[in-house]
Design a protein around this nucleic acid. Structure first.
Length: 388
RNA sequence: GGCGCCGUCGCCAAGUGGUAAGGCAGAGGUCUGCAAAACCUCCACCCCCGGUUCAAAUCCGGGCGGCGCCUCCA
């Protein structure tokens, strides 16, 4: 299998998972080994050469950190402390300074090699990000650079050094770093092997919408410990939201209530304030649940009219424009485990049984459907079904 | 050793000076053929010890506990 086919598999899997989670499709999936990108990297090395930021050693090109006084600002590095760090001397490469990093690695026997002007070899581990980001999103500065907190140093620091050293302009206006995702108290990482894929989660009987909810339930700058228990709790919380929305269908009184409009307004204000506060999604969800309780209460008290419903739906649509979790859930509901016609036929059968007060038969229908992943709920307005 | 993060109810999780949001689970009740859903009621002196302040989960100091980065995995 050639390199391209190999990596295609992962790109396809990523796209599929992203779709399941309701992520917007990305415009670009740049590959470091595409010619246009290798050329951009070689050009960046050339620019760094001209600015005096590089040196060569054993056929590799290195970035000379002493030429960039700003180096380390993002990670708030203490240069003196770094020099006396315990592990730098483990490095076997021919660098002038322990902090220097490789831009372009010399060819090694048996490894792929390219030459676009920086000499025969392959890209260093940071160069591709700077070169591809500026090629696709430039000119600098780009607006936002995101990533995991573990990448602040050295990866992002080195991206800054390369980009700013080559262009003379700031690299990114904003840096957004997310804390780690843990699995059973351990950092989730490929090298530890403690990763779950979206297909793994689905195979366990959970839904991607629950994963999305779980990720929204904590602030992005706090680590989140994934457990199957918390995923189940996320599932239940999300269900409360969707159950509420489906209750709206049964509202039949005419008219609208000003106090309901006021409630909606207060929730929208609180939601927006929470999001404006460094994307506090957990607090934003809190505002939604407070609204749900107030509105459920109003429904029970017969104090909601059909005239209120559009405004409520609109508010939830606006919330979900931001959170994008209800849309994922709706897409999942489009694909019930049993054909909709069959569910509706069985509901009719059950109604017939209930009318003749054959509750055993009626319960049997409900239990059978439940065993197949569909739950029934009776109310004055009729019987609703939903996925388990 | 250097830099940084975290410790809030059984579980998840907001709250960074004014007396503890929200969700899940649980208990009791209302409704229901039964369920489910929903509603009502109940359920936290915020890891510990000092300090500052009229007032501290929030600020300061010191502990204890957990974690991340300081590796050519990107």
């Amino acid at each position: 299998m050639d390199l391209r086919s190999y990596t295609d598999q992962y790109i396809a899997a990523f796209r599929e998972d992203a779709r399941a989670l309701g992520l917007e499709q990305v415009e670009e999936n740049p590959r470091a080994t595409d010619e246009c990108n290798l050329q951009a990297m070689a050009d960046m090395v050339g620019a760094l050469d001209r600015q005096g930021h590089t040196y060569r050693s054993d056929g590799s090109v290195y970035f000379k950190i002493s030429t960039l006084p700003e180096y380390g600002r993002l990670a708030r590095l203490d240069h003196e402390g770094m020099k006396s760090g315990a592990r730098v001397d483990a490095d076997s490469y021919a660098k002038e300074d322990a902090r220097d990093f490789v831009l372009w690695k010399a060819t090694k026997p048996g490894e792929p090699t390219w030459d676009f002007g920086a000499g025969p070899g392959r890209p260093g581990w940071h160069l591709e990000c700077s070169a591809m980001a500026l090629r696709l999103l430039g000119p600098p500065p780009i607006d936002i650079h995101a990533g995991g907190i573990d990448l602040v140093f050295p990866h992002h620091e080195n991206e800054i050094a390369q980009s700013e050293g080559a262009t003379g302009h700031p690299f990114s206006r904003f840096w957004v770093h997310v804390e780690h995702l843990f699995v059973d108290e351990q950092k989730m990482s490929k090298s530890l092997g403690n990763t779950y894929t979206i297909p793994d989660i689905v195979a366990r009987g959970h839904r991607p919408s629950a994963v999305r909810y779980l990720l929204l339930s904590a602030h992005y700058r706090k680590s989140l410990n994934f457990t199957w228990v918390s995923l189940g709790q996320a599932e239940e919380a999300l269900r409360r939201l969707t159950d509420f929305l489906s209750r709206l269908d049964a509202v039949s009184r005419p008219g609208a209530r000003p106090d309901i409009a006021a409630r909606i307004d207060a929730a929208r204000t609180a939601f927006a304030a929470a999001m404006r506060d460094d994307l506090n999604t957990a607090a934003a969800l809190g505002a939604i649940f407070e609204l749900v309780r107030a509105l459920n209460s109003a429904i029970d008290a017969g104090e909601m009219g059909t005239g209120d419903v559009p405004a409520i739906r609109d508010a939830f649509d606006r919330f979900d424009d931001v959170l994008g979790v209800l849309a994922v859930r709706r897409a999942e509901e489009q694909m019930p485990p049993i054909p909709v016609e069959e569910i509706e036929r069985l509901i009719e059968d059950r109604h017939a049984a209930r009318r003749r007060r054959d509750f055993a038969a009626a319960d049997r229908v409900r239990d059978d459907l439940a065993a197949r992943g569909v739950l029934l709920e009776d109310s004055a307005a009729g019987t609703k079904w939903k996925r388990k």
